[in-house]
Amino acid sequence: MLTYAIKRVLLFIPTVIAVLFITFTMGYLGPGDPIQTQVMRVNPRLADQETIERLREVYGLNRPFLVQWGDWVGKILRGDFGKSFATRTDIGPAIAYRLPISAQLGAAGFVILAIGGVLLGTLAALKQNTWIDHFIVGSALFISSFPIFVLAPLLIIMVILWLKLLPSTLGWDGIFSAKAILPILLFSVTGWISPIRFARNGLIEVLSQDYVRTARAKGLPERLVILRHVVKNGLISTVTFLGLAVSGMVTGSLFIESAFAIPGYGYMAVQGLTANDYNVIMATTLIGAVLVIAANLITDLLYGVLDPRVRYE
């Protein structure tokens, strides 16, 4: 297991470096020369070649590309993401404030997603091809067909304006307030189809295995067949959905947080994208990617623990 874990972690590092490189290169090419842009914005008359050259030197922009990249990576490792063009404030502290908010919502959503999804998927597999199965898979597919930016306003209108079940829920009051209910619901429900599918398909595959037939033939009560033989082996592949779920939540947070005016990571990303605020876009893209890579790493490690065969591939 240890060699497998080390191998996985070592694979993780080059991916992160590649992501850092791609992000920087695109952020470098995208906005053009920052000095030129700034000078033109402040006072176009200053835009003589000499001043620009001097400013480039002051900001270290005349150094080779790779040196600048290394400098940028070093700063990011120290939590310095540069300044936002739009608000003129440091991005690092903003992220330190905003990311935990999104993480709380995501974690709460994930717990509901995982437990609910696995239970519903198990039920669907055991009642395969009955109306229960069709209902569970069908409704999860149905919900996942609504893009989040459609679902969020629909929910706000229905629950708050029409049914008046909750007071106005825009904004952020901490995870244990009524305002967090709808966002958490959205974080979990929209991703349900993947754990349900993984659990259902995994269990159905195991249900047709010979050793299950043997267990039944030797007269084991159905309850024990399911608990001891089917569930244990059939749910291993469900772990795979972890990576998918984190990826879905990172993108989902963009729409959910902007719909509910939650000052989290996703809202920041949307603000950056709409304002063409390149430093913010680079920071949020990078963080999203690192979160997904980490989730995939954890998935691989968990798989290695649960299914020893994986370690020897």
């Binding site: 991916t15 992000t23 090419l29 995208g30 990172v250 993108t251 994208l273 893209t285 999203g288 990617a289």
Partner: peptide, 26 residues
């Protein structure tokens, strides 16, 4: 496969939005 891995490491929408935002000018 490494290129595929790296592209899959970005959350889909974020990468598309990023490419869109940065590549329009160049």
């Amino acid at each position: 496969m490494r290129i595929a891995d790296i592209l899959m490491a970005f959350p889909g929408l974020l990468l598309v939005a990023f490419v869109n935002a940065t590549m329009k000018r160049p």
